[in-house]
């Protein structure tokens, strides 16, 4: 069984991706590890893919998305990195690159092998993990977790696994189409990047399976209902099931606050976080500027405001007039924004 695992990220998340792929390499040295990178190396960084724990890189350009950079301009960093998951998955099915393709977010890491997924895909065409497996009991948890997932999606798309045939391939084509057109962070319109789409999956694809094992995709949003134990036999379990992979979302003070809130006195959770933080510190390359994204600025270095992206993606006339919107100078989108009096310095960029 040929298994391919991919993750999608930019150089700002290279440290996290290194940790993920390092743990994949440890547990599944025979699985192909693919990095989908929607970015370019920061200037002065000699990026050596052969020294990385992934087998190959698929750059954004390699995906041959129609309108290329014009399409990309219409997305902020999160939208872009989630949108490319669809094209890659679909193309992997078309190219028969593997029998099974698994996506994992760059901020996940394996603590055990994932072979039960391969077994589960003998009888299913796809697997998804819900954010939550049980209702919350407390109001704060309900607000943080149940209500939040009603807005952002029932399933966490930090993980998806498919067969590259049957409904797996059909799902990949459908998801590709939706993400190319509608991978937007626009909660009022019912969109949250790639995730809300997958609320349709149980209805559209009956050969998809909801993975209810608490050992998968453990994260701060489901910790209120998951008890982590580290036994003297050396096993780490979650509600009695072996811990498979953790989703280390929001590394930093905000993530710490949520983890403290929901782990409580389950100190083993913090041991796992400390482990991850040590690995990240080792994998971190301080030469990469914080929040670096090659597609975060115009070619003169000016950060791109989100509303300029939204305006561009909504206007076919602008797309036709300025097919290379990152450029600056005469007859560019940048110049057009200036002419319209819209080119005010951004207060926040994405």
């Amino acid at each position: 069984m040929r298994v391919l695992v991919f993750s999608s990220f930019t150089f700002a998340y290279l440290d996290r991706a290194r940790v993920l792929f390092g743990t994949l390499k440890k547990h599944h040295p025979d699985w192909e590890r693919v990095a989908v990178i929607t970015d370019r190396p920061p200037p002065g960084i000699a990026f050596d893919p052969s020294a990385e724990p992934f087998d190959r890189i698929v750059w954004f350009e390699d995906l041959n998305i129609p309108r290329g950079e014009g399409w990309l301009f219409g997305h902020d960093i999160v939208e872009a990195c989630t949108a490319v998951k669809g094209p890659f998955l679909h193309q992997a099915c078309e190219a028969d690159a593997a029998d099974i393709v698994i996506y994992l977010d760059p901020d996940t890491a394996l603590l055990n092998d994932l072979s039960p997924l391969v077994e589960a895909l003998q009888s299913h065409d796809g697997l998804l993990t819900p954010h939550l497996l049980e209702p919350e009991d407390e109001l704060q948890a309900l607000l943080d977790n149940e209500l939040a997932t009603l807005r952002t999606g029932i399933f966490n798309l930090g993980f998806v696994a498919i067969r590259t045939t049957g409904q797996g391939a059909r799902f990949a084509r459908w998801w590709n189409d939706r993400l190319l057109a509608f991978c937007h962070d626009d909660i009022p319109q019912g969109l949250f990047v790639d995730q809300r789409w997958c609320d349709h999956v149980p209805a559209f694809f009956d050969r998809f399976h909801v993975l209810r094992d608490p050992g998968y995709n453990v994260a701060s949003w489901n910790l209120s209902k998951r008890k982590v134990a580290i036994g003297q036999d050396g096993q780490i379990t979650v509600n009695g099931s072996p811990l498979r992979f953790w989703h280390f979302t929001k590394l930093g003070p905000t993530g710490d606050t949520m983890t403290r809130r929901y782990a409580g006195t389950n100190f083993e959770v913090h041991e796992i976080w400390n482990w991850y933080k040590r690995l990240i510190a080792e994998a971190h390359d301080p030469r990469i500027p914080p929040r670096w994204w090659a597609f975060g600025t115009f070619d003169d270095g000016m950060p791109i405001r989100k509303d300029w992206r939204v305006l561009y993606r909504g206007r076919a006339d602008l797309q036709a007039a300025f097919p290379d919107p990152f450029r600056t100078g005469p007859n560019t989108y940048h110049a057009w924004l200036q002419g319209e009096g819209l080119l005010t310095p951004p207060t926040s960029v994405a």
Binding site: I230, G231, Q232, D233, G234, I272, N274, W275
Partner: peptide
């Protein structure tokens, strides 16, 4: 436990 265990992997 075994030095190859998950517990030892996580432990500092």
């Amino acid at each position: 436990p075994s030095p190859d265990s998950t517990a030892c992997e996580v432990c500092s």
